[in-house]
């Protein structure tokens, strides 16, 4: 089948099997920044934002979200001269990254969380990231990264765009 999606703010017309998942469609159309892991909704590495809300792209049939806005990690930086969003900077500075495979998903979930809740508690952060597994960092640094991201966004007055967060 053939249909339009809005990916990172740009309309893309894509051809795909009507049984394909959003993960398959994104990766087959060049969005390799979306990682493929368990393909079973358990690891969270394939997370993208669908109309600003985190979803496991491996658990979403692409045909069910045609015309909707999909944000991948690239969507956070494309209009930013520095190349990194404040959330990404925070993850790098606080050591919330080791191998980096799960990082795009975690950054997107953090971005979505801070859009709705600029000052999350530890519990809010753990709830938001409860489906994103990291096998390197042990999560403490990730918690630190989210808190640092909140501070950075507050300091810069550059809160995540409301229209993407919900």
């Amino acid at each position: 089948m053939k249909a339009d999606f809005i990916i990172n703010g740009r309309r893309e017309s894509l051809e795909f099997d009507s049984r394909a998942t959003l993960l398959e469609v994104l990766r087959n159309s060049g969005h390799r920044e979306v990682k493929s892991g368990c393909e079973n909704g358990e690891c969270g590495v394939c997370t993208v934002l669908l109309d600003g809300i985190p979803v496991n792209s491996c658990m979403v049939l692409a045909a069910s979200v045609i015309g909707r806005e999909v944000t991948t990690i690239r969507g956070l930086t494309e209009d930013d001269d520095t190349g990194l969003s404040p959330v990404q900077e925070a993850f790098a500075e606080a050591g919330g990254i080791q191998c980096g495979f799960c990082t795009p998903a975690k950054v997107l979930v953090t971005y979505s969380l801070l859009s709705r809740n600029p000052q999350p508690s530890d519990e809010d952060i753990m709830n938001a990231l409860d489906g994103n597994i990291c096998r390197c960092t042990g999560y403490v640094k990730i918690l630190d990264s989210v808190k640092l991201a909140a501070e950075k966004l507050k300091a810069s007055g550059k809160e995540s765009r409301k229209e993407r967060g919900k």
Binding site: G41, T47, I53, V55, N56, M59, V109, D130, N132
Partner: peptide, 11 residues
């Protein structure tokens, strides 16, 4: 609020 994971609760 405890079911599955954040991303799955959204679907």
């Amino acid at each position: 609020s405890r079911a599955a994971s954040n991303a799955l609760r959204n679907r």
